[in-house]
Write a protein that binds this DNA or RNA. Structure first.
Lengths: 409, 409
DNA sequence: GCACTTAATTCGCGTCGCGTTGTAATTGCG
DNA sequence: CGCAATTACAACGCGACGCGAATTAAGTGC
């Protein structure tokens, strides 16, 4: 455990203040004090230091206290957008999405490269990422050395600390250090994160999880991702591993075990319909599910059934998550949601049927259709979160290793 | 978030020191300093305060530095066993287990009441618990007013803060406040906790999780319990709800959905063999699984298959937990383990088959056959942990409520 | 008996958060 | 226009904390 000293105390409160300014935008010192339950004195001291460091700036307008604004007007504080810039990226099998954001997470430039990186060698992917980053940074009118951090997100199992990709649908080889490959090319601090964790941060900072420090997020795309926010922090497993949902086995019999990803991933839904070249092309373009929806509406019964089956499996999986994590909220995101009610109807039914009675009112299910850019922005948020100096140190080297063994008493 | 002030800082370090003394027994101030990474000064100050409060005591022996012990001898510090006493209890369907422990968790007296409380009204159960507590306290040579806290553990979904039992195989009625019922009778601080959380704490304090601040525990008894330790703290869900494993749905099709508890609970294994009165009696006595093992060895093929099926389902469920939580360790406990390899063989096979390759070496699986008393002791440990003044406040009122709803963008 | 070694305490310093006091910047009203 | 009222913020002093250095305590070895 981290030992508590005055330095940590200050780090915590400083982060708390900075985070409050981020969340509530232009905000006065008094209000920060109210929200953080810190004294005006302390807030003044911390904000002075933040101003000194150039992380925030003052604005002498926007004081919107109701009615007669008597007394000395409040000085509003905002993040200094120019305090830092980061690049966030989403690496998916058929596209790369980049965005450059400023210190408060505003997108300065974004770029989508519709390239199929699926199963390419790591070095090639890294080259593509390098190009994308360079170009997106240029689009934002910046130079590479003005970028503090690059955060990459991709599906799979990622070791956050080391930036190692344990496995990913995108990479042929397991256990590649994407972080190293990028640092070698760009010489910028690089974070590698699971895409589910990235979109989890995005929902927490910009989306449907803004008001909530504890929720579970299910990302339904080509892969099925899981992000867990606990106490405002991403939940990480051993060695800071990211979590996965697609590997959840649906079935009790090992002989007939079937993974959720084989039921509810986009490929699973499309299986059997590969022949249709319109769908194939649409998938290449990342529009697969919208296209599938169209086909269902035109009467493709096979796809309709596949979508419903995926929804059922997801509904059950989500009920399982509620039983296992008891989260106050579950947020659903991902391109597969484009199927709309063809997916969601059966999802709702299956969830309602699967959720045990006493857990019925525990979790609020929220469905959020988000843009690709938000995923990249989420990766940027991960990077910014660390720049803000989160005092709990989510970063760091992997911890002691453990080997599997069946040891008995 | 909790705001950081000097008081919190001191609370954290004080807890850290106290916890170190608990974990390592007789320990000198120097060593505490090394382990906590606190300065000798700070350790001295904190230990002085702990001595002053009577929580620890000194011992001028046991300095076992290797070889020539030169210099001023170390004064060893230990918990003061008499600083507090608590009662821990395990409430199971066919027995009540109580233990009185001192401040360091040593069992002063224990008591097993082989009564079937299954489906009895709450008030009756509370009466039985009252009797058990009173008698066990008397057995320990203590008076009731010397007991600081009573901690009850039982299977089901428990709201830790309020002491409300949302649902339990034991209670007929849902949503009963067991805490209130007990406080009314004993007028002692009462904690109600899921039995899985209790045994999780027991493993962390006394068992196979001593060296580990992060692990997942699966309790396989009549009910299937789940405990998650994260950063040395019990993971709690919304409203401080306990987690459940038995409600995990094994299957992708809502029509054929089957809960893990219907495959791997003791009742599920015994199903179809109810006719055998020897088994029925054995179950009454809480020896069900040992008896079942005997029957299997005598050639009961039906039971052998049921056990294997349960093992398979559990192996899959555990693989799912590893994917979802990525814990460095999974500890298996519970009376069903008495089936031995009739359960574990298929469990191992199913786990190995279900666990995705990249997660193979993440979690160490540990099987621990524990006594009933340890469960009760775990409940006591939950109580003691709060007495130690864990600064993160696991106790407290339930937080804001949330209703289920499907809201979309 | 004296040097040596190590443990534990004491002392002084710097930092933190907080309450109080003082100052700055505005409105309201005569 | 001027002055009181009001409100935001900064400055000062207090007490608590943790830490490093110096000091005291309590042994061993010769």
């Amino acid at each position: 455990m981290k030992t508590a000293d005055p330095e940590l105390m200050r780090a915590i409160n400083r982060f708390h203040v900075l985070d409050t300014i981020r969340r509530f935008g232009a905000i006065s010192r008094v209000e920060i004090g109210e929200r953080t339950v810190l004294s005006a004195t302390t807030v003044s001291a911390i904000t002075a230091s933040l101003l000194d460091d150039g992380l925030i700036s003052t604005r002498h307008e926007g004081d919107l206290r109701g009615g007669g604004a008597r007394g000395r007007p409040r000085v509003m504080l905002t993040l200094n957008p120019e305090a830092a810039r980061v690049v966030g990226a989403k690496i998916a099998s058929n596209r790369l999405v980049f965005c450059v954001t400023n210190f408060q997470g505003d997108v300065l430039a974004s770029l989508t490269l519709p390239v199929r990186v699926d199963r390419l060698p790591v070095e090639v992917i890294a080259d593509l990422v390098e190009d994308g980053v360079r170009r997106c940074v240029m689009d934002a009118g910046l130079a590479l050395n003005e970028i503090k951090t690059v955060a990459l997100s991709l599906p799979g199992i990622i070791e956050h600390g080391t930036g190692r990709v344990r496995s990913s649908a995108i990479f042929r080889d397991p256990n590649v250090s994407l972080k190293e490959a990028i640092v070698k090319r760009l010489d910028i601090d690089t974070i590698v994160e699971s895409d589910a964790n990235a979109i989890t941060m995005a929902e927490h900072w910009f989306g449907r999880g803004r008001d909530c420090d504890d929720f579970v997020l299910v990302a339904i795309e080509e892969s099925l991702g899981l992000g867990v926010l606990h106490g405002g922090q991403l939940f990480r497993g051993a060695r800071e591993l990211s979590l996965t949902l697609g590997d959840m086995i649906m079935g009790s019999d090992p002989e007939h075990a079937i993974k959720l990803s084989e039921l509810a991933s986009e490929r699973a839904i499309l299986d059997g319909d590969h022949g249709d070249s319109r769908v194939r092309d649409a998938i290449r373009l990342g529009q697969g599910m919208g296209r599938v929806r169209g086909l269902i509406e035109e009467g493709d019964n096979e796809l309709r059934i596949a979508a419903a089956r995926a929804g059922s499996a997801l509904g059950i999986a989500i009920a399982n998550l509620v039983a296992l994590f008891a989260p106050p909220r579950v947020i659903l995101v991902g391109s597969t949601l484009a199927l709309g009610d063809y997916l969601l109807d059966s999802l709702r039914v299956a969830f309602a049927k699967a959720i045990p009675d006493p857990l019925k009112n525990v979790a609020q299910i929220v469905i959020d259709e988000v843009s690709d850019e938000l995923w990249a922005r989420g990766a940027a948020a991960v990077a910014l979160g660390e720049l803000y100096g989160s005092p709990w140190g989510t970063t760091g080297p992997a911890r002691r290793s453990t080997a599997i063994e069946f040891s008995e008493k």
